[in-house]
């Protein structure tokens, strides 16, 4: 069963003459453990798709099903719980709490889930170790590099053992070396740790780490290609005119 399935997903902003269709009847599905990159020019609807899948925004029409649950049927509290338990988020600007240490930031979702702080810290430390930050656990965000901050954000996204990770331009604020490291880490999240990833990116080199690339334009999916390494990714991008 697909971990994420959207059917006829549409989002229209504004009404009448000023109405803008950000997403237009998008059908998409992700299998467990699958790493899907979404690409396309600015304003094509990538981030809107991610927000709707994450339950951060509500669709104008169509459905989003996560783990077999249709989220438009859920209350605000139920969607919040779903996000907390089944979805991990990685943001472009890391969005770490500046006054908390790396381990406290990573443990946040568990703490919010009323997990005991000792259990949450142990789990967070385990994930910090997996993302290679075992020696920076006590550091606050301002004492970490951009790449390290994003690793903390990845650890935070994974600490609740979610089925799905949503990543919005996770390398958009990083240098090329750090970007490559984060992309490799996300690949690992998918192939070794079995989480499905839906990642929005502009960067072809990062997208090349995915199993599949979904190309969007004007709110629609214009191409959906399975790839196997950088070369097939380049071919797919050339085909849709991104390169």
């Amino acid at each position: 069963m697909a971990i994420v399935e959207t059917k006829g997903l549409t989002k229209v902003y504004g009404t009448g003459e000023t109405a803008v269709t950000a997403l237009d009847a998008v059908d998409l599905s992700l299998d467990p453990g699958e790493f899907v990159a979404v690409m396309g020019p600015s304003g094509c609807g990538k981030s809107t798709l991610l927000n709707l899948v994450g339950g951060l925004d509500t669709p104008t029409s169509g459905t989003v099903t996560i783990d077999g649950r249709e989220i438009s049927q859920l209350s605000d509290d139920e969607i919040t719980r779903l996000r907390r338990e089944r979805i991990g988020f990685v943001f472009q600007f890391f969005n770490l709490i500046p006054v908390l240490s790396a381990v406290e930031n990573a443990a946040l979702p568990l703490i919010l889930d009323r997990g005991g702080s000792a259990r949450a810290a142990a789990k967070a430390e385990e994930w910090l170790e997996r993302v290679g930050l075992e020696d920076r656990r006590a550091n606050r965000p301002d004492q970490l590099s951009g790449g390290q901050q994003q690793r903390v954000a990845v650890a935070r996204a994974l600490v609740t053992e979610p089925a799905l990770v949503l990543a919005d331009e996770p390398t958009g604020n990083l240098d090329s070396k750090s970007s490559e490291e984060i992309a490799t880490l996300l690949r690992q999240v998918s192939s070794e740790w079995g989480r499905a990833i839906l990642m929005v990116t502009h960067d072809p080199r990062i997208a090349a780490h995915a199993d599949r690339i979904v190309f969007m334009r004007d709110g629609r999916i214009v191409d959906d290609t399975k790839i196997a390494g950088a070369e097939s990714a380049r071919d797919a991008m050339e085909r849709v005119g991104l390169l």
Partner: peptide, 12 residues
């Protein structure tokens, strides 16, 4: 931003 992030990762 912090509040938005907390809401996104599951804070009610």
């Amino acid at each position: 931003h912090d509040i938005g992030m907390l809401r996104a990762i599951g804070a009610s």
